[in-house]
């Protein structure tokens, strides 16, 4: 285990940020801490970095007890949401900062910094000031800066949160590729489930100061431990008293034994996909529900869906459903 966090509790005044959290992060993996804002994920990351200290509990990094070590004594690289660029230093000096602190020889610093700038595609911006870079470039610089000191663990706090959608997507792919090359143990915090599902090897869902579930993206999506995880990881709708993913509902033209009758109330086209809103006539549970179903356009056309049409709905094979609690 690269990072082992045990029994962490942390309060800010009356607010419980983390409550009895245990977490193990395997070496060389890319792990996402996913959850709504205020759920405690950033606090956990900052405790691992030494930027906060827990009220109780321990932090172990690569077998070393680090709970009370100040950040500068942990082998940890930290990337901030708002870059925390050293505004008065050039891109080169920003990346060189940690190496200069460690009093490395000039030639070695130069070699290492240029390698990293190449890695983050900023080699031609070495002499610029951070204010002359775009947000995405600044964040890549911050990443190079954190990597320069060869940390055992790389921590990223909402690293793409301040960027616009397009850049965010680019950087996301780029982070994944970078990780595949470098294999440094990485934890990043995000509230964006798509980001977590797409990039990480493992996802830790945190809510209300507690870990809800830990697992691979597929595990979490297909076998959510509870309502919260299911709702947080993707779209959900209710059919016959159960939570279902809208793309897991099968629409039938004819009645089947396990299907529920429903009327189409509204059809909305979103690009190639069609969202059908329906009203059930009350299934086995006897409840009227208003599910929506996600279909492709060809499926919708084949079924000749239109508002007012009567159809039958059932969950498709091997569905993930949860009883509504």
């Amino acid at each position: 285990m690269s990072i082992a966090v045990t029994g962490i509790n942390k309060r800010f005044g009356d607010f419980v940020a983390l409550s009895d959290v245990d977490l193990e992060v395997p070496t060389g993996r890319l792990t996402a801490l996913l959850g709504p804002s205020g759920g405690g994920k950033s606090t956990l990351l900052r405790i691992i970095a030494g930027l906060e200290f827990p009220d109780t509990g321990t932090v172990e990094i690569e077998g070393v007890h680090a709970t009370w070590l100040p950040p500068q004594k942990r082998s940890v690289g930290f990337v901030f949401q708002h870059y925390a660029a050293f505004k008065h230093l050039s891109v080169y000096r920003n990346v060189a900062f940690g190496l200069e602190i460690r009093k490395k020889p000039k030639a070695e610093i130069r070699k290492r910094v240029m390698e990293l700038l190449e890695l983050v595609h900023l080699e031609q911006f070495a002499d610029r000031l951070p204010s002359q870079l775009s947000g995405g470039q600044r964040q890549r610089m911050a990443l190079a800066r954190a990597l320069a000191v060869q940390p055992e663990v790389l921590l990223l706090d909402e690293p793409f949160g301040a960027l616009d959608a397009q850049v965010r997507k680019e950087l996301r792919d780029w982070l994944r590729n970078l990780h595949d090359e470098m294999h440094v143990t990485t934890i990043f915090v995000t509230h964006d489930q798509e980001e977590a599902l797409e990039v990480s090897d493992e996802i830790v869902v945190i809510n209300g100061g507690k870990i809800e579930q830990t697992g691979s993206p597929d595990d979490l999506y297909d076998k959510p431990a509870n309502d919260f995880v299911m709702k947080f990881l993707g779209p959900v709708t209710t059919l016959d008293g159960r939570l279902v993913r809208p793309h897991d509902i099968e629409v039938l033209r004819a009645a089947e034994s396990d299907a529920v009758g429903a009327t189409v109330t509204k059809l909305t086209r979103v690009g190639f996909e069609v969202r059908a809103e329906l009203r059930t006539a009350g299934g086995r549970s006897g409840e009227v529900s208003e599910p929506w179903v996600q279909l492709t356009r060809s499926q919708a056309e084949a079924l000749a869906l239109e508002p007012g049409r009567e159809v039958w709905l059932r969950t498709s094979s091997a569905p993930q459903t949860l009883a509504v609690s």
Partner: peptide, 23 residues
């Protein structure tokens, strides 16, 4: 934040004052 970044890069209080705060 800049101070914290410097700290995570290994700078002690004096180094942070000279290299970050003062500039």
């Amino acid at each position: 934040e800049q101070d914290q970044a410097a700290q995570s890069l290994g700078a002690n209080a004096f180094q942070r004052f000279v290299r970050i705060t003062l500039p």
